[in-house]
Amino acid sequence: MRYEEFTLEGRNAVIEAYRAGKTIDKLFVLEHCKEGSMNTVLREAKKHDTVINYVKKERLDQMSETGKHQGVIGYLAAYEYATVDEILDKAREKGESPFVILLDDIEDPHNLGAIIRTANLAGAHGVIIPKHRASGLTATVAKTSAGALNYTPVAKVTNISKTIEELKKEGMWFVCADMGGTTMYDLDLKGSIGLVIGNEGKGVSRLVKEKCDFVASIPMFGDIDSLNASVATGVLAYEIVRQRMGK
């Protein structure tokens, strides 16, 4: 299931990776470059639904370790992604109500790894991340997860809001973390539940928040105004665990 993460530089390296069935998380491509084999790179990227970032030559030169990028640099995922259905299947196999953690643009790979680790320990059946703007399953994420990526499936979706809508049809309901919400101790967090955690700086986006059934806040008594995203995930996840255990 696992394969080593590394940076791909050059058109042939990227094309061969696609043809070998590797998952490329992100592609950085020289803007306005569409000649020759670059067309093949772009065609393969679109076929595999890879996120493409068009950048200036200076950016590619800064990123390049070999100096031979030929206008394209790709990042392989450190682990294969699961599907949302596979996450739900895991809950069914265990005979449990689904418990899923959805991340609305977590950018720091250390946060993502820590959240996956918490998800595993709290008994969540999987984690769902967005395809764009957020961190993917890099080697840093794998290392920070402390092995949890071997057991906790992570799915990557195009649109978190749409995924929430689809999962509601499966009988799930959703709670998102926000300082302006109802204290988590006053909410019923049992049953088939999705916990939504927002971006480190901006929090949960308005569109995603609107799709959630409840907004939960964590009681705080200190002098600063918020918790780290991975810590907030842990606090809320374990309130869900407490309620699921009937304590």
Results as ranks from 00 to 15, higher is better:
138 T>P: 01
98 P>F: 02
22 K>R: 13
41 V>S: 04
214 F>E: 12
71 G>I: 04
233 T>P: 06
137 L>T: 00
83 T>F: 08
111 N>E: 08
226 S>C: 10
12 N>V: 15
54 Y>I: 05
57 K>H: 06
235 V>Q: 05
14 V>K: 02
102 L>K: 06
68 K>T: 12
198 G>F: 02
175 V>N: 07
10 G>D: 13
39 N>E: 14
56 K>N: 10
39 N>S: 09
165 E>Q: 14
137 L>Y: 03
18 Y>A: 12
40 T>H: 06
204 V>M: 08
175 V>W: 08
51 V>F: 12
211 K>M: 14
196 V>H: 05
87 I>V: 11
21 G>W: 07
112 L>M: 00
147 G>F: 10
203 G>L: 01
13 A>V: 15
79 Y>P: 00
69 H>R: 00
93 E>K: 15
159 N>V: 00
96 E>S: 09
141 V>F: 01
225 D>C: 11
161 S>H: 04
40 T>W: 05
124 A>K: 03
241 V>A: 04
158 T>W: 12
110 H>P: 00
184 M>L: 15
19 R>Y: 10
208 V>Q: 10
144 T>R: 02
90 K>L: 14
48 H>L: 13
36 G>Y: 14
144 T>I: 09
42 L>G: 11
238 Y>M: 09
88 L>T: 11
246 G>P: 08
50 T>L: 03
227 L>E: 08
29 V>D: 05
207 L>V: 15
227 L>R: 03
228 N>R: 08
231 V>F: 04
198 G>M: 04
6 F>R: 10
183 T>L: 15
176 C>P: 07
191 G>E: 02
31 E>C: 06
67 G>R: 01
203 G>S: 04
204 V>I: 12
178 D>V: 02
44 E>F: 07
99 F>Y: 15
208 V>L: 11
48 H>V: 11
27 L>K: 06
91 A>V: 12
109 P>R: 01
66 T>C: 08
119 A>N: 11
7 T>N: 05
